[in-house]
């Protein structure tokens, strides 16, 4: 941090540790912070704890099977000791979550409109008509045309790429200060991947949303991240500026990930 006023982070995570009741450590001493308009990448291979981290941030881990310790500060207040009821107003409102599989993120039995309007109304006091208008505007913001028809559609009638854009539209409508995007492009084809990343960037640029971008694809990280956390077996082994990380990886694990990423390209 250079001189001047210290910028308060939107999300500050300190020593976050998750253990199962059988004392298996899933993530340990995870510490990081994100500021407004900043995209923090989180990389690591399957099973390293990326998703556990994001679930812990959303307070979505089952307290009967896991113990979460450490602190999570969101907009300057700790969410660790908040009641489930309070957390529910934060979840979606202040901190939103985009999951890997858009197909399973929506319930199949209600229309997209029903689900969007319900979610918007949960987080803001507004009439159904206003919520619908907000949903339409948000859909247009993610370049989905024919919003009125989409609101009537059911999830199975839409492609994965479209559903993922609707998820982002919902996040846009709620204007969270933090967005956790957990492998947002992994289930999509390459054409949709780029569209989704462009929408995330637009959301960041327009609303100054702070983002945690979780991906095992270093291409996604290269496109969007400011800084990158590298996670291995539940621990953060390196944090660096994205350019620094790609040019001069310090940790052997980061070096091997990058060698594979760059090597694959050299091969092609």
């Amino acid at each position: 941090m250079r001189g001047g006023a210290r910028i308060e982070p939107i999300l500050a995570v300190d020593g976050l540790t998750v253990r199962t009741k059988q004392q298996v450590t899933l993530i340990e001493a995870v510490t990081f912070s994100i500021q407004a308009g900043q995209i923090l990448g989180l990389v690591g291979e399957s099973g390293c704890g990326k998703t556990v981290t994001s679930l812990a941030l959303m307070r979505l881990l089952n307290p009967q099977t896991t113990d979460v310790t450490g602190d999570i500060q969101l907009n300057g207040r700790s969410i660790m000791s908040l009641s489930e009821r309070t957390v529910r107003t934060i979840r979606g409102g202040e901190i939103a979550f985009i999951m890997q599989n858009p197909m399973s993120a929506f319930t199949p039995v209600y229309s997209i409109g029903h689900q969007m309007i319900e979610t918007i109304q949960t987080h803001s006091r507004c009439s159904k008509r206003e919520a619908k208008q907000q949903a339409m505007t948000a859909l247009e913001e993610v370049n989905l045309t024919d919003a009125a028809r989409l609101l009537k559609a059911y999830p199975f009638e839409l492609s994965g790429g479209m559903l993922q854009r609707i998820m982002i539209a919902l996040a846009v409508a709620l204007r969270p200060s933090v967005l956790i995007a957990d492998e947002p492009t992994t289930a999509l084809d390459v054409f949709n991947q780029k569209t989704v990343l462009e929408l995330l960037e637009r959301m960041r640029a327009t609303y100054g949303t702070a983002m945690l971008l979780i991906s095992h694809d270093l291409g996604v990280i290269a496109e969007l991240a400011d800084d990158v956390l590298v996670m291995q077996q539940g621990r953060i082994v390196e944090r660096a500026d994205v350019f620094e990380l790609f040019d001069r990886p310090q940790h052997p694990y980061t070096q091997s990930l990058l060698a594979q990423h760059l090597g694959r390209e050299a091969f092609g």
Binding site: V190, K194, E201, G219, E223, F243
Partner: peptide, 25 residues
């Protein structure tokens, strides 16, 4: 050509989506 354009950057220097440079604190 469309497939190639859909490829993501390999290195942040080639990024096309995030045009702005990362903000430094």
């Amino acid at each position: 050509e469309r497939m190639r354009q859909a490829k993501l950057a390999v290195h942040p220097r080639q990024r096309t989506i995030r045009k702005t440079q990362p903000n430094k604190g």
